[in-house]
Design a protein around this nucleic acid. Structure first.
Lengths: 119, 119
DNA sequence: ATAACAGTTGAATAGATATTCAATTATTAA
DNA sequence: TTAATAATTGAATATCTATTCAACTGTTAT
């Protein structure tokens, strides 16, 4: 009876496949970027904001009413979305209007609709 | 000087716009579903798994090596992905092979690639 | 039957994210 | 200049998610 040393916990079952796939996979940095991108669609408030902005540009107060969260929460979410280059803003007096910065947003939302059509 | 009662913190700036947008927005349940769907793409490990499975079906051990996380972590992630109907599995003896359940996965990944092409 | 191994599971932990709160900035109007 | 309001900010909190760990199940081969 020997002491078990399987701390590694990983066993390559299909060495060739692992090699092949590893070669084809984008690097870690790219994977991070992709995940980061879809994080912008992975929260109900963000989805509501994006969907609403696809209909028309809107200010923070309007978005707060529509999504039923505070202006502050909206503002925080908008700043993430802006950093991800999904929304842009323009100031008109006291009011700042937000709008979509990327035409792909609606397409992405609709792709998910198609997939989630059968709950 | 009156006491301020603006606890609500929300002020409708554009009543008509708010009404119009509210009518056009899908309901909260739908928004939750959409967010839930994109949560499956919002983590680097999940993205790696999906991308790898788009190349070929694979077992948990292989995926663990490729993604550089434990089998257990992979297993947990796979179970989320399975619940979201994005992957499926088949058993062959001791080994369980996972593969994509939905052809939209690659399209979705590629859409993000296009968007993130200029970091 | 038992050993070996692929995979799963649930609880615990660590890390990340959303929201709130209070204070602050920017702009407009009195 | 002061008051009012749209919006932002940072810190604190609450919630959620990913990963680890240890124990377990299912299958195969001895």
């Amino acid at each position: 009876m020997e002491k078990k040393l399987d701390m590694c916990e990983k066993t390559v079952i299909h060495k060739e496949i692992v090699e092949t796939v590893k070669k084809q996979l984008p690097n870690d940095k790219k994977m991070e970027s992709l995940a980061l991108f879809y994080k912008m669609f992975s929260d109900p408030t963000k989805v509501k904001i994006l969907w609403a902005l696809d209909i028309t540009e809107m200010c923070v107060c309007d978005l707060a009413v529509i999504t039923n969260v505070t202006k502050s929460a909206i503002s925080h979410q908008l700043s993430s979305l802006k950093e991800a280059n999904l929304v842009k803003s323009r100031r008109d007096g006291k009011i700042i209007y937000y709008s979509l910065a990327d035409s792909c947003v609606k397409e992405i939302l609709e792709k998910a609709v198609i997939h989630t059509i059968n709950e």
